[in-house]
Computed example of a mutant assay.
Amino acid sequence: MPLRRTVRVAVALAAAGAVASAGAGCSASSSSSSAAASGAVYEPAGVPGAGLTTVVEGPKIVVGDAKAPHTATVYVDPRCSYCAKFEEGGAVPLAQAAADGKVRIEYVVASFLDARTGGTDSARAANAMRAAAEAGRFAEFQAALFAGGGAEDPLKVADRVEGLRGAEFDRAVREDAYHDWVVSAEKAFEDSGVGGTPTVVVDGQSVGVGDALYDQDAFARVLRDAGL
Score class of each variant (00 low, 15 high):
residue 172 A to Y: 09
residue 4 R to V: 11
residue 35 A to V: 03
residue 182 V to Y: 00
residue 166 G to S: 12
residue 12 A to R: 00
residue 35 A to R: 13
residue 154 P to Y: 06
residue 210 G to N: 05
residue 68 A to R: 03
residue 79 R to C: 12
residue 124 R to Q: 11
residue 181 W to P: 11
residue 124 R to G: 06
residue 190 E to K: 14
residue 153 D to A: 13
residue 125 A to I: 07
residue 100 D to H: 06
residue 214 Y to C: 00
residue 145 L to Q: 08
residue 152 E to S: 07
residue 149 G to I: 00
residue 12 A to C: 13
residue 111 S to A: 13
residue 151 A to N: 14
residue 194 V to G: 04
residue 94 L to N: 05
residue 182 V to M: 08
residue 33 S to M: 12
residue 126 A to T: 09
residue 117 T to R: 15
residue 41 V to R: 15
residue 131 A to C: 10
residue 73 T to G: 05
residue 9 V to R: 03
residue 129 M to P: 00
residue 117 T to M: 12
residue 197 T to R: 01
residue 9 V to N: 12
residue 22 A to K: 03
residue 205 Q to R: 13
residue 42 Y to M: 06
residue 173 V to M: 05
residue 136 G to Q: 06
residue 189 F to T: 02
residue 15 A to T: 07
residue 216 Q to F: 00
residue 38 S to I: 05
residue 206 S to K: 00
residue 191 D to L: 13
residue 122 S to L: 12
residue 61 I to P: 00
residue 200 V to G: 15
residue 90 G to C: 02
residue 118 G to A: 14
residue 206 S to V: 01
residue 155 L to T: 08
residue 149 G to Q: 03
residue 126 A to M: 06
residue 64 G to M: 00
residue 48 P to T: 04
residue 193 G to F: 05
residue 56 V to S: 03
residue 10 A to T: 06
residue 77 D to G: 09
residue 203 D to F: 00
residue 92 V to W: 01
residue 102 K to L: 11
residue 145 L to K: 04
residue 4 R to H: 15
residue 182 V to E: 00
residue 5 R to S: 12
residue 171 R to E: 13
residue 201 V to A: 04
residue 191 D to Q: 15
residue 194 V to Y: 02
residue 224 R to S: 13
residue 95 A to M: 01
residue 22 A to R: 06
residue 39 G to A: 11
residue 149 G to V: 01
residue 17 G to W: 09
residue 1 M to E: 09
residue 213 L to V: 03
residue 203 D to H: 03
residue 46 G to W: 05
residue 189 F to N: 00
residue 132 A to G: 10
residue 33 S to A: 14
residue 1 M to Y: 06
residue 128 A to V: 01
residue 131 A to Y: 02
residue 99 A to L: 12
residue 133 A to Q: 04
residue 10 A to F: 08
residue 47 V to D: 04
residue 199 T to K: 01
residue 68 A to E: 02
residue 25 G to T: 07
residue 172 A to F: 09
residue 42 Y to P: 03
residue 58 G to V: 04
residue 187 K to H: 10
residue 211 D to T: 09
residue 184 S to L: 11
residue 25 G to V: 04
residue 150 G to F: 02
residue 220 A to R: 13
residue 112 F to I: 08
residue 35 A to H: 10
residue 205 Q to P: 02
residue 220 A to W: 02
residue 103 V to R: 01
residue 142 Q to L: 14
residue 147 A to D: 14
residue 171 R to H: 14
residue 139 A to K: 08
residue 216 Q to W: 03
residue 218 A to P: 08
residue 199 T to Y: 07
residue 12 A to Y: 05
residue 161 V to H: 08
residue 173 V to R: 00
residue 33 S to P: 11
residue 103 V to K: 01
residue 31 S to A: 15
residue 119 G to V: 09
residue 171 R to A: 15
residue 200 V to S: 13
residue 147 A to I: 05
residue 66 A to E: 08
residue 171 R to L: 14
residue 107 Y to V: 02
residue 105 I to Q: 01
